[in-house]
Amino acid sequence: MAFEPLKIFEYIGERFTAFLEELGGICTTFVQSVVLLFMPPLRLDLFLKQMEFIGVESSFIVLLTGAFTGMVFALQTSYAFRLFGAQNLIGPSVALSLARELGPVLSGLMVTGRVGSAMAAELGTMKVTEQIDALSTMGINPVQYLVTPRVVSSILMLPMLTVLFDFIGIVGSYFMAVYLLGLNGERFVNDTIYMVDLKDVYIGLLKAAVFGALIAVVGCYKGYYAEKGAEGVGKAATQAVVITSVSILIADYFLTAMLF
């Protein structure tokens, strides 16, 4: 193939157009799913099924991650605070970072890996096997049937998982500080409560809700518009995870800047 410099511009232009197309598609999907929530029929069992999948079944992995995050965070900060003799700040700093950042972001990433990929794969397979087309022919809106329950469940469940993450993380750091570093437990709890504001927790939960929406919408979009064949399904799953993870981190920055 001959070297054609102008192809570079063509390539950039194509990628940019594709990006805009995708962004538009994701936004449209989100709006559609939300609008369709308020349109009959309301299939509650679909919602519950998704809630179970996203929330209940993710709780174990979130608890595990949260506990170890809290413990390792307590251990790491203790090294630094010991230099100033300020070990009483371990509890507050762990609790604050969990509530504000680590809780929502890490549970969001965990759920992305577990749920986002599954959604893309599931919807992609349905797309490839033409089940989505079948739903349309049966007079069922495939977005309302497939996407809306996932998005809504995800928005509701992510904050709940974050509460779990925060709690188990603080418990983990308490365990680390009191039983392994030998700090006063009562003091630890009092200082933590003294330093952490309700606002910190609630804003963390709001972030989690946004991340939940991102996970579900991107996952569904990628699956819904998956290309043909098994390869297309795999690609959709991979892309869903990558795009969601990156956008969670970017969104986290902007949310932090706006809300705190």
């Binding site: 069992d45 099924k49 209940v56 709940m160 509460v163």
Partner: peptide, 13 residues
């Protein structure tokens, strides 16, 4: 059942 699972989870949280 699914409902109970979700109920327990949500109540706990």
């Amino acid at each position: 059942p699914t409902n109970a699972k979700i109920g327990i989870f949500v109540a706990f949280v």
